[in-house]
């Protein structure tokens, strides 16, 4: 356990909040266990799982051979037999080796066996972009997996969600892909008491109210939207920010309501542009709203259609920052001034 309970005003980091989710789950639910590579290592997954093996034992916090597919399949098998395993893939890139068990198996068994089998497995994938990690250690593949019916996909952005969406994912009877981002690990906030909420009731949420433009992000991109909204506020521009939180099944209602008020939509996505998540959000809005409700064309800010570079000089061009988001919003709002 943490050495001492935090004082009421103490802030908790996102990484520590993930760990708090594990501690809650492993303490309160005996059918929960964690399995994956690096779980007995002090650094493999940042500060998000430190000493869990010492607290809960190596029988329930299982470090594994280098076998992503078999370990994910074993978690699916244990889930079919009454357990609620969490499989950890320290890089989302490595999880690609386990695609059969996630896409063909976990996501399908309930449907194809007539609702008689459930696979309540949580697959935790960590996006670890930047730091010259290159093309195979930094991918954000959420859009790929959000395409799969039967697989819930969540991307926590806030500190509280880092813990509470993990708890909700594990307690959900469906397979869930929980994606966290190392670039969020030092985000801090006061963490409220843990609450167990049904994941099926969770969805996109307005995290900052505004009237001029709707900024939409998921995971780290949502935090960028919040930072951009701060920049814009200093200039007298009032952005609303929506944190998507749950990418599949996707309920765009909150986004539709927001854009119908602001008339402007800018989607920020840490994934690629083509056939990507940002395109899905824009399509959902475009087909539901009367075009006359839009004051400008929707816009998406994404990674370029290129693998992640390694050299830091190229990384600086590759990744999105809050300044890019603010600049795009400014351009969209400037069109308003010109038109009026």
């Amino acid at each position: 356990m943490n050495s001492q309970p935090p004082a009421a005003s103490t802030e908790t980091s996102y990484g520590e909040a993930i760990r708090a989710g594990f501690v809650h789950l492993l303490s309160s639910h005996r059918e929960v266990f964690a399995i994956g590579q690096g779980l007995w290592s002090p650094w493999y997954v940042g500060n998000s799982m430190t000493d869990l093996d010492k607290l809960f034992g190596k029988a329930r916090v299982i470090d594994t051979p280098v076998s992503e597919l078999a370990c994910t399949g074993a978690a699916v098998g244990a889930a079919l037999c009454g357990y609620r395993p969490i499989v950890i893939h320290p890089r989302m890139d490595f999880m690609v080796l386990a695609a059969d068990q996630i896409i063909n198996q976990a996501a399908k068994w309930h449907h194809m066996l007539g609702g008689q089998a459930i696979a309540p497995v949580t697959i935790r994938a960590i996006i670890n972009r930047g730091g010259e990690q290159g093309a195979q250690h930094s991918q954000a593949l959420h859009a790929w997996f959000a395409h799969i019916p039967g697989l819930r996909v969540v991307m926590p952005s806030s500190v509280a969600d880092a813990r509470d969406l993990l708890v909700a994912s594990v307690l959900c009877d469906d397979p869930v892909l929980y994606i966290d981002d190392r670039w969020l690990y030092e985000r801090k906030a006061v963490l409220p008491a843990v609450s167990e909420r049904p994941l099926a009731a969770e969805g996109p949420r307005v995290v900052r109210s505004g009237t001029d433009i709707t900024l939409v992000g998921a995971g780290y991109s949502s935090w960028l939207c919040e930072q951009a909204a701060e920049i814009l506020a200093a200039e007298g521009l009032d952005a609303e920010v929506i944190d998507v939180r749950v990418l599949n099944p996707f309920d765009p209602a909150v986004i539709l309501a927001s854009v119908s008020r602001t008339g402007r939509l800018c989607v920020v996505d840490g994934g690629w542009r083509n056939a990507g998540w940002a395109g899905e959000v824009i399509a959902s809005v475009a087909e539901a709203l009367d075009p006359r409700q839009l004051k400008s064309s929707p816009r998406r800010i994404t990674l370029p259609n290129a693998p992640a570079p390694t050299s830091r000089m190229l990384e600086a061009d590759y990744y999105i920052d809050a300044g890019h988001v603010a600049a795009a919003a400014r351009t969209m709002l400037a069109a308003r001034e010109t038109a009026s």
């Binding site: 399949g73 074993a74 098998g77 198996q105």
Partner: peptide, 14 residues
Amino acid sequence: GATIPIATGAALAA
């Protein structure tokens, strides 16, 4: 081959 790791996980459950 898909049920080979799944059975392995069922054995872990057991």
